[in-house]
Design a protein around this nucleic acid. Structure first.
Length: 470
RNA sequence: GGUACCAUAGCCAAGUGGUAAGGCAGAAGUCUGCAAAACUUCCAUUCCCCAGUUCAAAUCUGGGUGGUACCUCCA
């Protein structure tokens, strides 16, 4: 597989450190509120990358952190009059509601910053021993960005350019040797949670937790590190600097970054206030539709959020889902006789083509948009076969397995809109079938209206009536 | 000021040298007691503009225009 590596700004063939194994890390949420659609994009993207790598036979270890201590956490907890821990517990639970809803497989390890303090302190000790840190009294322990010659290699910034940059940075210039220096340990302030350390009571800086977690759970060098574009600088740049300064070896081989979700052409962000939480969006669209929407464009290109586009995604997804429903219905109700198997070969060929093309597209830097096209093409072939009484159950079953296989790699839930049909509804449908047989169409239509009121629709097919939830 | 990215049909969106995928919306037809789903056909002589390279350019080069992002908490 080829991945676009931010480090080299090129698509590169992915070669893991250890054959057959992948160590990957993605930056997770700061758990101080519900996450929004922009936050959801990396969760879905890297979940899909993980699923695909597993599909290709890799043994993947996927780590995603919870940032549960920082300024925002502290401020929010104070506003709510609860502890930082209580706030974190609450929004980690809420995170799982949405992440599970979006069908993101749970990462293998999801460490909290506050439960990784020992590893963080060990890393700062290593940085100190190697001469990369200095202390600002009453402030914290800082990392000196000039101590390593390749600082800036990920973002492709150089220190001079950064110094010439925006004036707002000067605000926290005081005491720092260089404007780009950043805190690895912040000394405690009144009323803040703190931990003991060799430098004094305090809490970790923002960047150090990811470095420490990577080392602790994955090792000194990992295969893939993911996150949103906005984390390239300074967060990931600083992670690299710290990790390599502490460990003395390369930190990560492939850096993968997703583009943003926009609203009216502007980045969706908390600071702009133009964000929609996943929880809010689910008032109007199912989780499955949100995931499908995210995957319908390439992860490195911006996608625009709008009601109209979500609606189009819903209709598109339902084309696949309806195909699956119809396929299952035919298999369950099809008579054993009369299938000549005439079209079977074409269907089998369509399955084979779909799978090969799907892999080619996903291999090319996770091109989920083209992979979805392959699924649509498969759907078309299946729809034709479903309507063809010469299709054998064997051929249809194979096609069903292929549809399940490919959609599962993308985390598309084919059964998101399925419910058990109550007996009351089944009875009404049976009555309607009887009425139709007697050509009592008035009663048949009446029953359809009743069903509609109760939230169900009925479709007449050559294999009998098919009931669906509206 | 520095550093990147983007521009393809009514909308969304792939395609990065070989003659424009797919989805949504729309039109016509088939099927159906009706309906739904589905199927068939149609829907960009053209890829922001201008020059250049090439047998061949949406794709490469140069120059414009428009938009976005990062350099500051942010996915």
């Amino acid at each position: 597989m080829r991945l676009f590596n931010t480090l080299t700004r090129n698509k590169e063939e992915f070669v893991p450190i250890t054959e057959g194994k992948v160590k990957m890390y993605a930056c997770g949420p700061t758990v101080y509120n519900y996450f929004h659609l922009g936050n959801a994009r990396p969760f879905v993207t890297f979940d899909t990358l993980r699923r695909y790598l597993e599909y290709r036979g890799y043994d993947v270890t996927f780590v995603q952190n919870f940032t549960d201590i920082d300024d925002k956490m502290i401020n929010r907890a104070n506003e709510e009059g609860i502890t930082v821990k209580e706030l974190a517990d609450r929004f980690i639970a809420e995170y799982y509601v949405d992440a599970d809803g979006l069908n993101c497989k749970r990462p293998h390890i999801q460490p909290r910053a506050t439960e990784t303090i020992d590893a963080i302190i060990d890393m700062i000790k290593a940085l100190e021993a190697n001469g990369f840190t200095y202390v600002i009294e009453g402030d914290g322990v800082y990392y000196d960005v000039t101590k390593k010659a390749d600082y800036g290699k990920l973002s492709h910034y150089n220190l001079e350019d950064l110094q010439a940059g925006g004036g707002e940075r000067k605000a926290n210039y005081e005491g720092k040797k260089n404007p780009g220096d950043f805190a690895v340990w912040k000394f405690k302030k009144e009323g803040e949670p703190f931990w003991e350390s060799p430098w004094g009571d305090g809490r970790p800086g923002w960047h150090i937790e990811c470095s420490a977690m990577n080392k602790k759970f994955l090792g000194d060098t990992i295969d893939i590190h993911g996150g949103g574009k906005d984390l390239i600088f300074p967060h990931h740049e600083n992670e690299i600097a710290q990790s390599e300064a502490a460990n003395g070896c390369p930190f990560c081989n492939y850096w993968v970054h997703n583009a943003f979700v926009n609203v009216d052409g502007e980045k969706m962000s908390k600071s702009l206030g133009n964000f929609f939480t996943i929880r809010d969006i689910t008032e109007h669209f199912p989780y499955a539709v949100i995931r499908f929407f995210i995957l319908s464009g390439h992860y490195r290109k911006p996608i625009n959020f709008s009601d109209k586009d979500l609606t189009a995604s819903q209709t598109g997804l339902d084309r696949i889902v309806t195909c699956y429903k119809n396929l299952k219905f035919v298999l369950a109700n099809k008579g054993a006789d009369g299938a000549s198997g005439d079209g079977d070969e074409a269907l089998a060929e369509a399955c084979k083509t779909a799978k090969e093309s799907f892999i080619t597209h996903m291999d090319d830097d996770l091109n989920t948009a083209d992979a979805i096209t392959d699924i649509f093409n498969l759907v078309k072939s299946i729809n034709t076969a479903v309507a063809d009484k010469n299709a054998t159950a064997k051929a249809l079953t194979d096609a069903k397995a292929m549809l399940e296989e490919l959609t599962d790699v993308l985390g598309i839930d084919l059964e998101y809109s399925e419910d058990k049909i109550p007996e009351e509804i089944t009875a009404l449908v049976e009555e309607r079938t009887a009425a139709k047989k007697n050509k009592d169409y008035a009663r048949a239509d009446e029953i359809r209206d009743i069903l509609k009121e109760k939230g169900y629709s009925v479709k007449d097919t050559p294999n009998g009536p098919q009931i669906e939830r509206l």
